[in-house]
Design a protein around this nucleic acid. Sequence first.
DNA 1: TAGATTGTTAATCGATTAACAATC
DNA 2: TAGATTGTTAATCGATTAACAATC
Lengths: 234, 234
Amino acid sequence: MSDPTSAPEATVLRLSRYHCFMGELLTSAGTERVRSRQIAEQLGVSEETVRRDLSYIDMEGRPGAGYDPAALYEALEAFLGLSAHYPFVAIGSREMLESLAVIFPAEVFGLRPIAYYSALADDVGATVRGLEVRHLSEIALLDPCHGATVALVACAPESVPETLELLDGAGIHAVLMLTPMLRPKHPEGMDVTYFRIPCALKSLASKVRRPETCCGGAGEAAACGCSNAGGGSE
Amino acid sequence: MSDPTSAPEATVLRLSRYHCFMGELLTSAGTERVRSRQIAEQLGVSEETVRRDLSYIDMEGRPGAGYDPAALYEALEAFLGLSAHYPFVAIGSREMLESLAVIFPAEVFGLRPIAYYSALADDVGATVRGLEVRHLSEIALLDPCHGATVALVACAPESVPETLELLDGAGIHAVLMLTPMLRPKHPEGMDVTYFRIPCALKSLASKVRRPETCCGGAGEAAACGCSNAGGGSE
DNA sequence: TAGATTGTTAATCGATTAACAATC
DNA sequence: TAGATTGTTAATCGATTAACAATC
């Protein structure tokens, strides 16, 4: 029942969202109980899905009264194998690490960067949010006692293969990849999740289907003198 | 048959990857024919899946001889509703826009940023890869003739609601969101895809399950004097 | 024709939705 | 007890895999 590998991929991903949400709820609202419906509404999923997801973890709700937020938070933490401030390493330019820290302040989500690495010599020694940026090659020196087992990779494409090798050697076998590689190539046994920005943008294109032609409506397309390159073929 | 809305979500996403791949293939290898097996191997999916995916688009292969790369590229382009250099807008700090351009050079993927926007006054007027950064509020002035229908949003969390409103007002109803919002809230009818970095990192955690305890093996955990906070509970 | 590969159909697998009995 | 909400089972939906006939 409480085995992450038996739960569907999609469920594990949602459970991690519930964990983020419960974390926020705990710091703000206090200790009222929480219903599956509330979680569902806040996160934009169905309440049945929430209950089904929670049935995978070691947590019991009270019929008629929902779940205890603190207990739920801890059960999610245990299930996902997270610790209080779950450690991770990040790889990218100083600039990238800095901007990522802005859109995604780790501590808010219960995460904690323990090391930053950049492939650029100029970045080495700089400080991002109080953490020193080291050179890529220093991944090999990563102290396993820090306990990081996951990495966020957002470096330039040409540094990706070397980065993955170094991470694998340092005992980090799970990676979230932001650099879009056309042909994924990882060390054997490494678990790599891709967020492919260009592919996602392209697949969005098919959903919007250019509602009205430029300057409104067929027949008047020429009125504004714009080229609308290739868009009018269909 | 050739209707993007009838194809499964997962298929559309893969088709956009095939499009990226064919783009690369065309610029490098020339005009040999391409087999479903080749595509499958390169991209790490099964060849049956490739053929099934391609059956949704307006493209015929030759039994025994595969597909014509140029024709396939164009068929994918048409199906996905892409144009030669598909336009998009991006929102984020100058730093973020700059770093994204490094990990994801748009032109390599057949995409083209037509406008950059930042919420930070200091960023306004700066240039990223030859394109001026404008202020967020100028999204409202976006010329629909440019034909952008999708946006990449990677700004600070507090600017997200305003950004989405502005984009919606400017006729952009499809967004790829890199800023992780706990509770998604979009304008009615807007299509928002989330890449939630913290959630993905957390869900990766459950897959690695901390193979050996720090300093190798149970019983010797204390030998290195590390705390290993919370990690050894299971 | 023979060999190779496509396109499609059937079978399996997995995830979500709906319904409802159990229970606080 | 009555009301509300959980947890689970059955039904549906969707995607992938396997098999194979069609065809270049």
